[in-house]
Amino acid sequence: MRNDELQKYHFLNYDLGEDFVHNSFGFCIEKDKKVLSACTPCLLSKKSAEISIITNSNFRKKGLAALVAAKFILYCLDHDLTPHWDAANYPSYLLAQKLGYKFIGEYKIYYLK
């Protein structure tokens, strides 16, 4: 996944694949050795995990993101982690609602150059 132009973003916070394997977790759906959808924590602490989902554009709207997210959420709950969802776009917002999350408000994000 590290060499995949889309899925490589799951590893931005880790120096090596081994670092991810030893210090994080994630779930994916693959076909013919290609990851179609993956869910990993973009932020992880001892008590919580921030959900990050990336699905190949050719396989969106097929329920794959919902499957990996549901598995991620169940894993978190089984391991006493609070799964947090910060919807960065409308499809993410809709998926969060589908999986039981409730909207609590918006906030602004500023980018510095």
Results as ranks from 00 to 15, higher is better:
6 L>F: 10
6 L>N: 06
8 K>A: 10
8 K>D: 06
8 K>M: 10
9 Y>I: 02
9 Y>N: 06
11 F>W: 01
11 F>E: 00
11 F>V: 03
12 L>H: 12
12 L>C: 09
12 L>Y: 12
13 N>M: 03
14 Y>S: 01
14 Y>W: 03
15 D>F: 12
15 D>M: 13
16 L>G: 10
17 G>K: 06
17 G>S: 10
17 G>H: 09
17 G>W: 08
17 G>N: 13
17 G>D: 14
18 E>P: 01
18 E>C: 04
19 D>V: 06
21 V>G: 01
22 H>F: 09
23 N>K: 06
23 N>F: 04
25 F>V: 07
25 F>L: 11
29 I>Q: 04
30 E>H: 11
31 K>H: 13
32 D>P: 01
33 K>H: 14
33 K>A: 13
34 K>E: 12
34 K>A: 08
34 K>Y: 05
34 K>N: 11
37 S>R: 02
39 C>Y: 01
41 P>R: 05
41 P>V: 06
41 P>K: 05
42 C>F: 11
42 C>N: 14
42 C>I: 12
42 C>S: 14
42 C>T: 11
44 L>A: 05
44 L>M: 08
45 S>V: 07
45 S>M: 08
47 K>C: 13
47 K>L: 14
48 S>I: 04
48 S>E: 12
49 A>T: 00
49 A>F: 02
50 E>F: 06
51 I>L: 08
51 I>F: 00
51 I>E: 01
52 S>L: 09
53 I>N: 01
53 I>E: 02
56 N>Q: 13
57 S>Q: 14
57 S>H: 13
58 N>Y: 12
59 F>V: 06
60 R>T: 12
60 R>F: 02
60 R>P: 00
61 K>G: 04
61 K>V: 07
62 K>R: 15
63 G>I: 01
63 G>N: 00
65 A>L: 03
66 A>N: 09
67 L>N: 08
67 L>C: 11
69 A>H: 01
69 A>E: 00
70 A>K: 15
70 A>L: 14
71 K>P: 07
71 K>N: 14
73 I>F: 08
74 L>H: 13
75 Y>S: 01
77 L>R: 15
77 L>E: 15
77 L>G: 09
78 D>S: 15
80 D>E: 14
80 D>N: 15
80 D>S: 15
81 L>W: 05
81 L>Q: 05
81 L>C: 06
81 L>P: 00
82 T>E: 14
82 T>Y: 14
82 T>L: 13
83 P>M: 10
83 P>G: 09
84 H>W: 15
84 H>L: 15
86 D>Q: 14
87 A>Y: 03
87 A>H: 04
88 A>R: 12
88 A>I: 11
88 A>Y: 08
89 N>W: 07
90 Y>P: 09
91 P>K: 00
92 S>K: 02
95 L>N: 02
95 L>V: 07
96 A>R: 02
97 Q>P: 11
